[in-house]
Design a protein around this nucleic acid. Structure first.
Lengths: 151, 151
DNA sequence: CCGCCTATCTATAAGAC
DNA sequence: TGTCTTATAGATAGGCG
């Protein structure tokens, strides 16, 4: 602490593609974590269901879901009557037939989840020290059913 | 302006289910907008693809996707090799057969999109006045392919 | 419910280690 | 690459019209 420059603090940035790769990776990680946290908060505060899928710059998939991604997807595909639904019902019938889709989703999900839960713990440890009234401290793990935090 | 109390400013809140319904609705709307904006920023800053589905307290579905929800979903279901994929390939074959699923998704998506685009405009107008370096100002509409903002 | 305001809280861009 | 710190940008709770 020898008269150190006390950092410029957070600087304003333009919302446009970050060119420097290393910087982009850092920003991606930080913001992805922040986004998932916000989603988790919204879900808890309002008791609503949310699913989110993010592909990293390296095309790795990160997902978050309350209660879990596949159920939300399924509901979105089959249950949600679109704004101007008219001849939709028949289509929906067809979709129920294709519930193979859902089962595969679940498998994908479960595999993701396995790794995710390990990383969840890691994540809690990382950011956890400063957590007091933080979301994650209050949420049962189930609420973060699929959260991929490595990378 | 007769010696008005200048607001208490933002108060800290506990991340737990909001009990008062009207309050919950307000919070939901504000945070959903914020979440979508963050997702949009992440997508732009890092050039990554994101899909998000949120069910409102009234079970209405709100979605956001870059480039669009269905393509991300499809990629998540079929393209993403899960962490410890081993016997997955066969499953993926099966999924390709069920691409009826995808087409129905697209239809659902398109209907949603119709309304969404109308609301997008409304949204831009609403928050847009103060927008300068704001994300939405920079993004071509296509980037916000499905964004449901009423309710 | 929409839009606006503002005091505060929270997320995060930069750095240093 | 990962963690910690700092200062500031950005999000938002509470209120009003």
């Amino acid at each position: 602490m020898v008269n150190k420059k006390p950092s410029m603090g957070r600087q304003k940035i333009k919302i446009e593609k970050i060119s420097k790769k290393s910087h982009l990776q850092v920003t991606f990680s930080k913001r992805r974590a922040g986004l998932f946290k916000k989603a988790s908060e919204l879900s808890t505060l309002c008791g609503v269901d949310i699913a989110m899928i993010v592909f990293s710059p390296a095309q790795k998939a990160f997902s978050f879901g309350h209660p879990n991604v596949d159920s939300i997807m399924d509901r979105f595909l089959t249950g949600n009557p679109p704004p101007s639904s008219s001849g939709m019902h028949q289509l929906i019938e067809t979709q129920r037939n294709a519930n193979v889709c859902e089962h595969n989703m679940q498998l994908t999900q479960i595999l993701n989840q396995l790794e995710a839960e390990k990383n969840m713990e890691k994540y809690l440890t990382k950011r956890g020290k400063a957590l007091e009234a933080n979301v994650f401290g209050k949420l049962p793990l189930k609420n973060l059913s699929c959260m991929n935090l490595n990378n």
